Simulated scan of single mutants.
Amino acid sequence: MSLNNQLILITGAGGGLGGAAALALAGQGASLILLDNSIPKLEKTYDAIVAAGGPEPTMYPFDLAGATEAQYQEMADAIAERFGALHGVLHSAVEFSAFSPIANYKTKDWGHALNVNLNAAFLLCRVLLPVLLAAEHAAIVFTSDSSARKGQAYSGAYGVSKIALEGFAAILAAELESAGKIRVNTLVPGPVDSPLRRKAYPAEDKAALPAPASLQPAYVYLFSDASLGVTGQIIDAQTFNR
């Protein structure tokens, strides 16, 4: 499942899941554009890819929640000008502070979570569709959460954003299916030992959880030719790995 000559953009590339995805995709030959609002985290992922012998990635510090529409468009224009085409986008960035009842939510915190988890995905897709359509085939992969999909109490803005994100992915997949160029799927990682999981469940035995690297086969599949024709699907990474 070689990804040679493929260019893939990853949001949250400095995070646990985004970093694991970056290493997996670069390990198959993909060239990457790494997006994150933390330069030190970006540099850590960059260094790991280079140390493993992967293609030198492009770092793009970017604040998904704070950027303007014009800045999103500038990023898309820069990618089009430099590379011509984009073969994939992985939406891995996530905002989660803590479990909290709706009654206690502050408007600012609610809006920030929705901006990172949902609105950024919309804006990125909208500005990047032309450069994705310039590729022969391209893949968009969203990241969801199995517990949030159940409308779990106290999941708040995080839960709402994940429920909405799956709906957005389904709508986008249906709109793009007839053209046959861009496939759109959603990955549900399941419980893994990630920074978000540690924040959400601090008392959990992390030694019993799989590492983020366990998701690498699913990431490679979703961006490789092996998934051509697969669109509008929700992929459970834990089942996939088995």
Rank of each mutant, 00 (worst) to 15 (best):
L129H: 12
W110S: 05
F62D: 02
N115I: 08
G151V: 02
A153D: 05
G12T: 01
A26D: 11
A80F: 14
L7H: 06
G229N: 02
E95M: 14
Q233A: 15
A30R: 10
F168T: 15
P202C: 02
A138K: 04
G15W: 06
E43T: 04
P101C: 00
S224F: 09
I171G: 10
R197N: 03
A30T: 03
N241M: 13
G16W: 01
E74M: 06
L209C: 04
L23T: 06
D225Q: 15
K106A: 03
A24W: 01
S144T: 15
L35K: 02
R126D: 11
L209S: 01
L25F: 07
A26K: 10
Y60T: 13
S144P: 12
A213M: 07
F96T: 00
A121L: 08
F122W: 12
L132T: 02
T11L: 13
N117F: 14
Y72L: 15
V141Y: 08
D63E: 02
T68D: 04
I140D: 06
V188I: 10
P57Q: 11
V184C: 11
N241K: 13
S178R: 15
H112T: 04
A226W: 00
A78P: 01
M1L: 10
A98P: 00
A213N: 11
A208E: 13
V131F: 11
Y72V: 12
V160F: 04
P202R: 14
I49P: 02
A138N: 00
E74P: 00
S92R: 11
I182E: 05
N185W: 08
L7W: 03
S31P: 01
D205S: 11
E136C: 06
G88Y: 03
S38R: 04
A211L: 04
F240N: 05
I33Y: 05
Q71S: 12
G19W: 00
F96N: 01
A52S: 14
I102P: 00
P57K: 09
G54A: 10
P210Y: 00
A157Q: 06
G151D: 01
Q216M: 14
P191D: 14
G18R: 07
L17V: 15
F83C: 10
T45S: 09
G159A: 03
M59H: 03
V116S: 01
I163S: 07
